[in-house]
Write a protein that binds this DNA or RNA. Sequence first.
DNA 1: CTTTTATGAATGAAGG
DNA 2: CCTTCATTCATAAAAG
Lengths: 204, 204
Amino acid sequence: MVNVMEWQKQQRWQANEMAYVKVMTDEQLETLRKQIAVYATICEQLVEMHKTISAHQDLAGIRMGNVYCDPLFGSGGHKIASRQRWTPTSMQLQILERMFEQGTGTPSKEKIKEIAAELSQHGQISETNVYNWFQNRRARSKRKQQSAAPSSVNGESEVETEVDSKDKKAKADEFLSPPSVSAGPADNLGFQNTSNLQYLNPVS
Amino acid sequence: MVNVMEWQKQQRWQANEMAYVKVMTDEQLETLRKQIAVYATICEQLVEMHKTISAHQDLAGIRMGNVYCDPLFGSGGHKIASRQRWTPTSMQLQILERMFEQGTGTPSKEKIKEIAAELSQHGQISETNVYNWFQNRRARSKRKQQSAAPSSVNGESEVETEVDSKDKKAKADEFLSPPSVSAGPADNLGFQNTSNLQYLNPVS
DNA sequence: CTTTTATGAATGAAGG
DNA sequence: CCTTCATTCATAAAAG
């Protein structure tokens, strides 16, 4: 009830002049896309949930067994700019890597700007990129070291004490049937809503 | 879902020459908006229906703390590693988002409790979660606006950068209330969904 | 082309 | 509030 106003506001442009203008900002588009994707996901999951329940209790009060609408409209349109992410240049990577090693390991607000400025000479880059890079680099370096040093203090009965997250996820995926919602129908009704953007953005 | 600002910024360079033009007429936008509203309505009602139906057997769906996992995960009978951190339900998120944009921006100790109570109807949540959410939302919104500042110069109709379209949500459904929800929401859902989403993703 | 891996980015929570 | 960290999501790149 608010954004629509915004859209219209922006649409006040010369609609008759050129059919070559963005009516929605990328931001709005992205938001919309996500929102719809969320609904699509929820609905899909709900359908599965009901299917399951119905099968067990014959509560088919709602006929939705055949509803499963595959939102994969013929892929091809790719109209919506898909999210893209920065990819460091080999040069940038080298510099960053070097800084990481010798640096105090503390990104520092000031430094970031400085670094970003320098790296921009080797390709597009933003301060955020630099920031994220260091954050990730640090985190991963840490994790790696951690999992590499199981510290044999006690019996290794706890095989999954550390390396958990990633491994668990991987395992889960194996039997979670990635393609459709057949295995884990409502398993993420409560979370993970934005993972199905593909529905709206069938890149292929 | 918020840092769209960032990629938008980045997009400017990585895909500058592609001229991603999104063109929607007011009419299409309006249609889309309505459709989403309907979608939201249906979803919420389905959720409620599901809750009712499976109320007596769904108790295992909620694990410790904020974990909201699915009990219907029958295939494989595997225990899913529970999450350690709260993840807002799409419904909760929307409500929060709405409150954020329209709210005074003041979390307020009182409000928190209130909000938490309301949101608990849509999934597990604690006051701390709400508090953190607002805290983060605000901080990030701010930071983002800051990094996006250098791009806006012209005095054109300045659309505040912190817009969002999590509005036409499931609240007004009570009024909008699509007729067929109880009879055959599915058909309606599936059909409309598919046909209308084309606006966002035109098939070639 | 499909699956897997590497990694940029988003985000809930903790500390100060 | 602001900064930092840990975990998770999503996608470019690599492998098959």
